[in-house]
Design a protein around this nucleic acid. Structure first.
Length: 327
DNA sequence: GGAATAACCTGGATGC
DNA sequence: TGCATCCAGGTTATTC
């Protein structure tokens, strides 16, 4: 499930291969991969072919490749925007290589130093997408994202907040946002308009590290607790980045098709029934807005007594997960 | 306007 | 062995 570390690993892999490369041709095999694009596959191919890629940039879980105009030395005005969804992959392949399983789009490039190569967008569950979108100015005048020094960002990424590793991320603004939210802190961490790059895995891990119960109302957190949480979010993301991201299955790999190792370092996520690394009591799993939360009920005390009617009560150990759509 | 929820989608795992 | 069902979860449209 690509979150910030996984997407950054992909961005870092793409950057040296595609920066300065010219698009020779584009093949759209499945137009469902263009749900964010304003036109059809032919439009996507026509608008991309012949363009020069300026860089590989990222904000939160969104990637983009800024495109230079076909003539002159002007700055990039639009970009190929990509989101990996749950199972998207960006792979670097030799030109003419065999089609990947679930390949949706192939972009053939020629790089002045590396020669010809292909960027393959493959996506099993088709939650990911590619689009060509205009670049607009950032409201704060700061660079649009990682790997992109210009103060611009694709229009469809403009509503996405900066991530906690971004030098322009404002801790004070984050604290103010939380102080005005009644929602559970985990829900707020997953809200990409508040803070980007965090998904279910790193939300659970950060809350476990900060000893905060996921159902705690955001506004109930003290300044000290918010600062501790931000510190743990950054620590978890940095560590995952250093280990190449989290791979549970073949759905997350870097541009060379290799898996990351952070799954071995998880303390709470996916460890239902296993002892908490801190206190030894079992990690519990509860249903949470169509997904799961994993936490230690001892280290992460509930903000209030859980009522029997609450959907989020811990399951007995070894119990089967609740159906997502109970009758 | 803020918050909560459902829908989208595929393939591996599991149960019968 | 084959079929049906569950499950994973990021984003967004819809509903409350």
């Amino acid at each position: 499930m690509p979150e910030l570390p996984e997407v950054e690993v992909v961005r870092a892999g793409l950057a040296p291969a595609v920066s300065g490369a010219t698009v020779l041709g584009v093949t759209v095999l499945d137009e469902r991969a263009l749900t964010r694009h304003g036109g059809d596959g032919e439009d996507f191919e026509a608008r991309l072919t012949g363009r020069v890629v300026d860089a590989a940039a990222r904000r939160g879980k969104f990637l983009w490749l800024p495109l230079r105009p076909t003539t002159g030395e002007r700055a990039a005005t639009d970009a190929v925007v990509g989101h990996l969804g749950m199972s998207g992959q960006m792979l670097l392949r030799a030109p003419g290589s065999a089609p990947e399983r679930h390949e949706r789009v192939r972009i053939d490039l020629v790089h002045p130093a590396h020669g010809e190569l292909s960027v393959v967008f493959a996506d099993q569950r088709t939650f990911g997408s590619l689009a060509i979108d205009e670049l607009i100015a950032t409201p704060d005048g700061a660079p649009g994202g990682f790997g992109w020094a210009e103060a611009s960002v694709p229009a469809q990424v403009a509503h996405i907040a900066r991530d906690p590793l971004d030098p322009a991320f404002s801790d004070a603004a984050f604290r103010r946002d939380l102080a005005g939210k009644d929602s559970a802190i985990k829900r707020v961490l997953l809200d990409q308009a508040v803070v980007s790059g965090i998904g279910n895995i790193y939300a659970d891990e950060s809350l476990w590290a900060a000893r905060i119960h996921p159902e705690t109302p955001a506004r109930a957190l003290s300044t000290r607790a918010v600062n501790r949480l931000l510190g743990e979010v950054r620590h978890v993301l940095d560590k995952a980045l250093a280990e190449g991201g989290t791979s549970f299955d073949a759905q997350y790999v870097n541009v060379n098709g290799q898996a990351g190792y952070f799954a071995h370092s998880l303390n709470a996520y996916g460890r239902t029934g296993e002892p908490c690394p801190r206190c030894g009591r079992p990690i519990v799993r509860v249903s949470f807005t169509n997904r799961s939360s994993h936490f230690c009920a001892h280290c992460q005390r509930s903000p209030r007594p859980l009522q029997a009617s609450q959907a989020g009560r811990p399951e007995p150990l070894g119990a089967r997960a609740q159906p997502r759509h109970p009758a």
